[in-house]
Design a protein around this nucleic acid. Structure first.
Length: 681
DNA sequence: CTGCCTTAGATTTTT
DNA sequence: TCTAAGGCAG
């Protein structure tokens, strides 16, 4: 049942822009889903509805819920992240923009490589000027794109001491731009800029596609995205945006909370509605969130009140060190599962950075507790996945220089330099397989030469148009798998990963669809393939947890350097964003919230590692601590019956029933297999 | 000049 | 564990 405020949002007529300020847990997604249903009931065409979100995960969630509500067999075609919708539209109109529809999408590491490639071309080796380092160079470029500011303005804000070399930087960025065009590739920022460019073409009616636009998490949009929205509803004004300034956590990408204020300026006739009643959490949890928000440097007055009433007080659990933290979390989760019958699905562990969960993942593996991890490494970032995708990319877009470079550098004896030359050769050739067959390869590569050229002939030869995705993947694997021992330290793990991707890839109808889904869509089904069961625990970065909720939530690493993150500690603005991050984490909990503060941190050194004292997070102020319950017993099972029951239940779910379940006193100390293959770009 | 091996140093968040 | 960077060999 919807409350009157929610009902007002659902029934708001489509002819005026609507701004919904929705606090955490106020039923935002539910309201959006109902509103879509209402619009469709009033005759709107689902194919002309555009639903935009910020993260892949939120898009997936919204898509599923709308499909369930509308009982659609096929989900809404235009529900996705800004980037995925942009990619889809750009493919359709690529020729108008002077691109071919098979363009490649460059991820962060591809664009980094290409930018540095441009840098090397422009700047002679003994650099005469004092130039920014690579990391800074990349952040300058990205910040420029995301905030739409001039190079001078960005330098002024990020690196004033490099104002003098602006002209050289401009030349490098320009070269990068032409390199992307030559490679027929878009980086992530280009997808948004390209969409905006498309909308501003006079020959195209910018609002011809969509009758109604809805945007979730509006506080996280950046200036390009808000400009896109402005163009999309130039005439019809049928736009709904939903946001909450307390949950703005993407300023680092150029997102600005000011967009919410600007929205009212851009659409003067806007109706502003508020959702204030929280249906998610107990009052105790909201008291803690309110206490935290009360200490924010600035922000709108915000007091969440619970419709649900009272419950259990949230706790702070002080732990000896990070191993102790992992054990306590595992204990609390097992106990909840067994004693309180809280399914794993209803529990989550949240953290600031994906490496925080390392020890916890080991413990969970030891105890055979199934989990899915969200955030951090994406599938398409893993080296072997990128290798595999590179073969598909060059077939889709033979001009894809970074992909060629990657493929060629796999050959023994071929390093970055000769890979670059060969890649240029292949990318510029009409028939890449013949160009490379004619090129000379180093002696060391002799053994690979035959199979390599065979693969290329399969992909680029006469019969390439009838090549099925499955057969192509088989051919790639046949060539690629034997290379793994040469390329990586743990080839077996890589091989497993590659096979999993190849299997998951069969779901897709075409190569292009597969590539788009992995680059801009939701890859969690491919990423966590082994867990078919419904019963799994969620581990997630706080960023990826936004929009989700669980009955029990555990927030890790409440230390200085953990949360707030160490890199953020210097700037007040960044600290405020860290505070909002914790706010988001806490407000995910429905009935049970525990924060964990390890007292020590493990530091790597020459001998191995030693422990250092870790300070408590600055967010654990007296005001916040006052509403948190403290310490108490640690999470061990308090009676033998519970322990027995835990074993029984865990055993039923475990893959191998003979293996031991949870009891860290008796747990075997052998290291479990890594949760996932290691990273390498 | 290129490739490969060794060693030192690092380690956010997302598309 | 991974990456960048520096030294050495081809």
């Amino acid at each position: 049942m919807l409350n009157p405020q929610q009902q007002a949002v659902v029934e708001h007529p489509g002819n005026r822009p609507l701004l919904v300020i929705a606090g955490a847990g106020t039923g935002k997604t539910t309201v959006m889903v109902h509103r879509v249903a209402e619009l469709v009931a009033r005759g709107a065409d689902p194919h002309r509805l555009l639903l935009l979100t910020f993260t892949r995960r939120a898009a997936e969630e919204l898509r599923c819920r709308v499909a369930a509500k509308l009982k659609l067999d096929v989900p809404l075609p235009w529900c996705g992240t800004f980037h995925s919708v942009a990619a889809k539209l750009l493919r359709r109109f690529a020729t108008r923009l002077g691109r071919s529809p098979g363009f490649s999408i460059l991820d962060e590491s591809d664009s980094r490589d290409l930018l540095l490639h441009g840098l090397k071309e422009i700047i002679s080796k003994p650099a005469q000027e004092d130039l920014p380092g690579k990391a800074l160079l990349i952040s300058i470029h990205s910040y420029m794109a995301n905030t739409q500011q001039s190079l001078e303005d960005v330098l002024d804000q990020l690196a004033p001491r490099f104002a003098g070399v602006a002209e050289s930087l401009r030349a490098v960025f320009e070269r990068y731009r032409t390199l992307k065009i030559e490679a027929n590739a878009y980086d992530y920022d280009d997808l948004l800029l390209g969409w905006l460019d498309l909308l501003r073409r006079p020959e195209l009616k910018s609002d011809a596609f969509f009758d109604c636009i809805m945007v979730d998490e509006y506080q996280d949009t950046n200036i390009i995205q808000s400009n896109i929205l402005l163009e999309l509803c130039k005439t019809h004004r049928n736009i709904t945006v939903v946001g909450d300034d307390a949950q703005a956590i993407y300023a680092f990408r150029g997102a600005s909370v000011e967009n919410i204020l600007n929205f009212e300026r851009q659409f003067p006739e806007v109706i502003r509605l508020k959702l204030e009643e929280n249906y998610r959490s107990t009052q105790e949890i909201l008291d803690a969130a309110n206490a935290l928000w009360g200490e924010a440097a600035r922000g709108f007055q915000k007091e969440l009140t619970a419709a649900k009433g009272a419950g259990v007080r949230p706790r702070l659990d002080v732990c000896r060190d990070e191993w102790d933290q992992a054990e306590k979390i595992v204990a609390a989760i097992s106990e909840a599962w067994v004693r309180d019958h809280v399914p794993l699905r209803e529990q989550a562990v949240l953290f600031r950075a994906s490496n925080h969960s390392f020890r916890l993942e080991m413990k969970l593996n030891e105890c055979r507790i199934p989990f899915k991890k969200y955030g951090g490494q994406r599938l398409a970032d893993m080296a072997h996945a990128k290798d595999l995708l590179a073969f598909l990319r060059v077939h889709e877009n033979p001009k894809d220089l970074p992909a060629w470079q990657r493929i060629l550098a796999m050959l023994p004896g071929v390093g970055p330099a000769s890979a670059g030359k060969l890649a240029t050769l292949a990318a510029n050739a009409l028939l890449p397989h013949e160009a490379l067959a004619a090129a000379s390869l180093p002696k060391k590569a002799a053994a690979c030469r035959g199979p390599f050229l065979d693969l290329l002939r399969t992909q680029f030869g006469d019969s390439n148009n009838t090549l099925e995705l499955k057969d192509e993947l088989d051919a790639i694997l046949a060539y690629y798998e034997p290379l793994l021992p040469e390329l990586y330290d743990f080839p077996e793990i890589r091989r497993e990963g590659v096979r999993e991707i190849a299997t998951a890839a069969l779901k897709f109808k075409s190569r292009r669809e597969l590539l788009d889904e992995l680059m801009t869509g939701d890859d969690s089904a491919v990423r966590n393939p082994a867990r078919e069961s419904d019963e799994f625990l969620t581990l997630s970065t706080i960023h990826s947890a936004k929009g989700c909720e669980w009955r029990r939530v555990h927030v890790m690493q409440l230390t200085e350097g953990g949360l707030p993150n160490g890199a953020a500690a210097k700037e007040d603005r960044k600290i405020e964003e860290e505070r909002r991050l914790l706010y988001v984490a806490m407000t995910r909990a429905k009935e049970w919230l525990t924060l964990y503060q390890p007292l020590q941190r493990e530091v790597k050194d020459q001998q191995g590692s030693h422990h250092e004292r870790a300070l408590p997070s600055r967010f654990l102020t007296p005001a916040v601590l006052a509403v948190l319950g403290g310490g108490g017993r640690d999470g061990r099972f308090s009676n033998p019956d519970a322990r027995q029951a835990a074993r029984a239940k865990l055993a039923a779910a475990a893959a191998d029933p003979d293996e031991l379940i949870y009891d860290y006193d008796e747990a075997p100390r052998r290291p479990p297999p890594p949760a996932r293959p290691f990273r390498r770009y």
